[in-house]
């Protein structure tokens, strides 16, 4: 039997745009996160540092799904930490798309 709470939960889930971009202010926060905090290992202009470069050219051979997994869960055996506590899966989808298009540095 459906309780009122589960009905409401389903309605909320169904009405949420699944692949929508994050709202504009959050996009700015995410760009800042990539440039400044990812940048502390990958370079502020993403040309690389202790971590590898994250330019469009450097990422071109890597599937988006793999990159999303690396950001969310980190890479064992390397200093890359999991960012899951700070970003949602849909936000990571947007970040990877931006990175692969080389669009972070334009923002």
């Amino acid at each position: 039997m459906l309780t009122r709470a589960t009905v409401i939960a389903w309605l909320v889930l169904l009405s949420a745009p699944v692949l929508a971009d994050p709202p504009a202010p959050r996009q700015q926060e995410l760009v800042n996160l990539v440039r400044q905090d990812c940048g502390s290992c990958h370079g502020m202009t993403l040309q690389g540092g202790l971590g590898p470069p994250l330019t469009a050219a450097a990422l071109s051979g890597k599937p988006a799904e793999y990159l999303r997994g690396v950001i969310l869960d980190g890479r064992a055996g390397t200093p890359m930490p999991p960012w899951r506590p700070f970003v949602s899966e849909s936000e990571v989808r947007w970040m990877v798309d931006m990175l692969k298009r080389g669009a972070i540095n334009d923002r």
């Binding site: 502390s40 200093p79 930490p81």
Partner: peptide
């Protein structure tokens, strides 16, 4: 032997 926390800046 305790588990490390993730490091978000060196």
């Amino acid at each position: 032997g305790t588990r490390k926390m993730p490091v978000y800046k060196m």
